[in-house]
């Protein structure tokens, strides 16, 4: 007989950098990062998604059609401190590479951790957008990041 375990669920208002907000259902359940895969996406210079690979579609829980044209902050989990994303934008807007550990929100409210790298796409000397590649993080880095982000909320 299996025990009927209920995953803790909560409603949270997520406020974005641009002043917009949404209420999301947050489910306290981690979806493991798939071995051997890279999640790849590209955005325009304002952070709107222009390319999503299949691993991104699979892990985010959104369809490709829902992702393309959406702001990348659709993945923002309320447990991520705003200052982490400020650091990301400050770095890539200077034309530099950013790397960090991120807890991402899936469409169904569950989450997954990634090690993310974002680089600016420079074409003929002009910034055209950004490429973000996510890979599997270690458990120790996830624990360190959880502890750090809790102090920054």
């Amino acid at each position: 007989m299996s025990e009927d375990k209920k995953t803790p669920t909560r409603e949270e208002r997520i406020r974005y950098f641009d002043g917009s907000e949404r209420v999301a259902t947050i489910v306290d359940e981690e979806i493991p990062y798939p071995d051997g895969k890279l999640i790849v996406s590209r955005t325009d210079i304002k952070g709107f998604i222009t390319h999503a690979n299949q691993a991104f579609v699979d892990m985010s829980g959104y369809t490709r059609e829902e992702l393309i044209g959406a702001n990348h902050n659709i993945l923002r989990h309320p447990d991520m401190p705003a200052v982490a994303f400020k650091g990301l934008w400050d770095t890539v807007e200077k034309g530099e590479k950013w790397q960090g550990f991120v807890k991402n929100l899936r469409k169904d409210g569950t989450y997954y951790w990634v090690k993310a790298t974002v680089i600016p796409n420079i074409r003929n000397g002009q910034l055209m957008g950004y490429t973000s590649v996510r890979r599997k993080p270690s458990r120790s880095k996830i624990r360190e990041s959880e502890a750090l982000y809790a102090t920054l909320m």
Binding site: V40, K97, T117, V118, I119, R123, T131, V133
Partner: peptide, 14 residues
């Protein structure tokens, strides 16, 4: 050219 640049950007992230 853009396919190539995309792949190179990706390698740069790695």
């Amino acid at each position: 050219e853009e396919d190539t640049e995309f792949m190179i950007d990706l390698i740069d992230t790695l």
